[in-house]
Design a protein around this nucleic acid. Structure first.
Lengths: 202, 202
DNA sequence: GAACTCTAATACAGTGTTGTATCTGAGTAC
DNA sequence: GTACTCAGATACAACACTGTATTAGAGTTC
């Protein structure tokens, strides 16, 4: 099939996006530190020239990558936030959240890598922290709405509960990825359900 | 001061231990992948010869390191298990557990690195998984005792609850390390307390 | 104390990675 | 269609890391 003739801008955007996709793949596979610029551009089908003409550094690319994913996830959360919220929905949504947070294993690994990198790189940490807080506030807002709807007082500040929720889901996911089969997805979701129900429907 | 004249075995053990300590330091600081054998032996005050005469590979050393820490942690848990358990203790112990799991930030980072490595290295994963399950079973046993003492049915299998507990604590810790000041230790502990109380004292 | 045996140092060869400096060719403007 | 410009390829020089093969020297055995 005939390849469309691209304008300069289209071509550049395509390269940029392909580099991001390749980076996601390689970083998830080998880890951020072990993923060389060479690996990434090879996976994308370019040479190192393309990389340095698009990004300042590997960390720079990684932030672009995370930023993109973060926007997608927030859009999904926004949908939950915008939809009229009923009590039944809430319970359903929370238990579904476990499955939704990271759209797939790859993205989960990317964020785990990112958090580890953040422990060491202050600039990176600042960036990641901002994303993390945005997400927390989105969730806190949902929780707040829930308790308002229910007419009861939340047992802790909604923001803290949101933090707890994220932590629990992330932790669960982490254990489950690195120790597969020990805990079935059903068991994980059930346990999450127990904890959440206890906390939110006490 | 006069340095004691060491036997061959003492000397070897000393080297081994110093390499482990150095590795813990360097890996926590730079990450497993970025920590070169060279870095580790330099930190320990040796040359590469010492490394290859003690370990097969970097992963080999890392496992030895984790194994050592795991044993220490289990011993601490064992103390909780052995002590006569009262209801008041239980609540206290759970909230204290948050502080105890990882003896310090360094050890926490090491295990996070390990879990990430486990995602990619099957042999390593098997090893880590075994440790993880031992820990889970210790905790499950404590939880089981608790519900027996209380005379109520646990809301989910104790092993799953143990998994949930570990996941929550780990997740919380992870967020707190990479986003310091956002959530004070007090707030974290309070939130944990709320969730645990709701789940266990429902 | 002489011969022996390990632990750890040293030397070395090979490979992978980085960033820059320069070049090329396809898109663009006139 | 000619000159221009920018995305990306290529070439290069420096360096870091790995693992093995060999060596030195301190501990051991008799």
């Amino acid at each position: 099939m005939a390849r469309k003739r691209l304008t300069r801008e289209e071509s550049r955007d395509q390269t940029y996006q392909r580099l991001l996709d390749a980076a996601a793949h390689v970083i998830a596979k080998k880890g951020f530190a072990a993923a060389s610029v060479e690996d990434i551009v090879a996976q994308a089908g370019y040479t190192r020239g393309a990389f340095y003409s698009n990004f300042k550094s590997k960390a720079d690319l990684f932030i672009a990558l995370l930023s993109q994913d973060h926007q997608c996830v927030r859009q999904d959360l926004q949908k939950i936030l915008d939809a009229p919220l009923s009590m039944a929905d809430m319970q359903e949504q929370i238990s579904q959240y476990y499955v939704q947070v990271y759209r797939d294993e790859k993205n989960f690994i990317l964020w785990a890598e990112a958090r580890l990198l953040a422990l060491r790189d202050a600039k990176f940490r600042a960036r990641l922290n901002a994303y993390c807080l945005e997400k927390r506030d989105d969730i806190a807002h949902i929780i707040e709405q829930f308790f308002k709807l229910r007419g009861t007082e939340p047992p802790a500040p909604p923001k803290d509960l949101a933090f707890g929720t994220m932590a629990l889901v992330d932790g669960m996911r982490f254990f489950n990825e690195s120790a597969p089969k020990e805990l079935t997805d059903e068991a994980a979701q059930h346990t999450l359900g127990v904890i959440f129900n206890a906390t939110f429907f006490k």
